[in-house]
Simulated scan of single mutants.
Amino acid sequence: MYLLLGTRSLLGCVFLVSFVGKAWGRTRYDGYLAATRRLMPRWAASRIPARAAAPGILAAEAAVPVLLAVPASVLAGLALSCVLMAVFAAATAAALRRGENAPCHCFGFSQRELTSGHVTRNVVLAVLALAGVIAGTSSAARPVAAVDAAVVVALAVVFALLFAIADDLADVFRSAG
C-alpha cells in the first residue's frame, strides 16, 4: 500500500508540475511546442504536426494527476504514466542520437540542453509507474495509518519536486565542481 501511495503521489505531482509549467503562459507553451517539434521522432513528425501532437501530449499529462487522484482510476493513471514516460525516454534517446541537444522544456521552464540524464530520469519514472501498477494489482487494500500516509505523501512530493528541478540541480553541482 505504501508503494502504491508513494508512486501515486510522486507521479501525480510530477505530471501536475509538468502540465502547469508548459501551460503557464504563451512563452512557456511556445517553448514546449518548439521542443515537441524538435523531439518528435521523424516518422511521427511526418504524419502528425507538432501543433496537433503538443496539445494531445499536454492533455495526457493533465489527465494523469486526475486519474491518480480518483481511487477507481489509479491503475489507469499509473499505466498512462508508464506509457508516457517510456515514450518520452524513447523520443529523447532518439533525439540525442540525431544530435539534437536543444532544451526539452520538459517541465516548461528548464533551459538545460538535452542529455542522457533526461533519458535516465524518464526511465526511472517509467519504472516507478510500473512498480505502482504491480503494487496496485498485487496487494490487497489495507488501511494505512494517517501519519504514515502523510509521511509517504510528503516524501513523494519532495522527490517529485527534485525530479522537476533536476536540471537546475545538475547545473549547480556541475558549476560547483
Rank of each mutant, 00 (worst) to 15 (best):
A54F: 10
A54S: 15
P55A: 06
P55H: 08
P55Y: 10
G56D: 06
L58C: 07
L58D: 04
A59S: 12
A60G: 11
A60M: 12
A62G: 11
V64W: 00
V64N: 00
V64F: 00
V66N: 00
L67I: 00
L68H: 00
A69W: 03
P71H: 05
P71Y: 07
A72R: 13
S73Q: 00
L75I: 15
L75T: 13
L78K: 02
A79R: 03
A79W: 05
L80D: 00
C82E: 06
V83M: 02
V83Y: 00
M85G: 01
A89G: 04
A91F: 08
T92C: 10
L96T: 02
L96Q: 01
R97F: 01
R98V: 06
G99M: 06
E100K: 11
N101D: 14
A102E: 14
C104Y: 08
C104R: 14
H105R: 15
H105M: 10
H105P: 01
H105L: 02
F107I: 12
S110L: 06
R112D: 13
E113L: 11
L114H: 03
L114A: 10
S116E: 13
S116A: 12
V119N: 08
T120Y: 08
T120S: 12
R121V: 01
R121W: 09
V123E: 04
V123S: 02
L125M: 15
L125I: 01
L125T: 01
L128F: 10
A129D: 01
A129I: 02
A129L: 03
A129Y: 01
L130Y: 04
L130F: 12
V133Y: 03
V133D: 03
V133L: 12
V133R: 06
I134Q: 09
I134Y: 11
A135D: 07
A135E: 08
G136L: 03
G136Q: 06
S138R: 14
S138D: 12
S139W: 09
S139G: 09
A141I: 10
P143I: 10
V144I: 15
A145N: 12
A145I: 05
V147M: 13
V147G: 13
V147Q: 13
V147A: 14
D148R: 11
D148E: 14
A149T: 07
V151Q: 05
V151H: 08
V152Y: 05
V152T: 10
V153L: 02
A154M: 07
A154G: 12
A154L: 13
A156N: 07
A156H: 05
A156P: 09
F159M: 14
F159Q: 10
F159A: 15
A160Q: 05
L161F: 15
L162Q: 10
A164F: 01
A164K: 05
A164T: 06
A164S: 13
A166W: 11
D167K: 03
D167R: 04
D168W: 04
D168R: 11
L169W: 10
D171F: 02
V172L: 15
F173W: 14
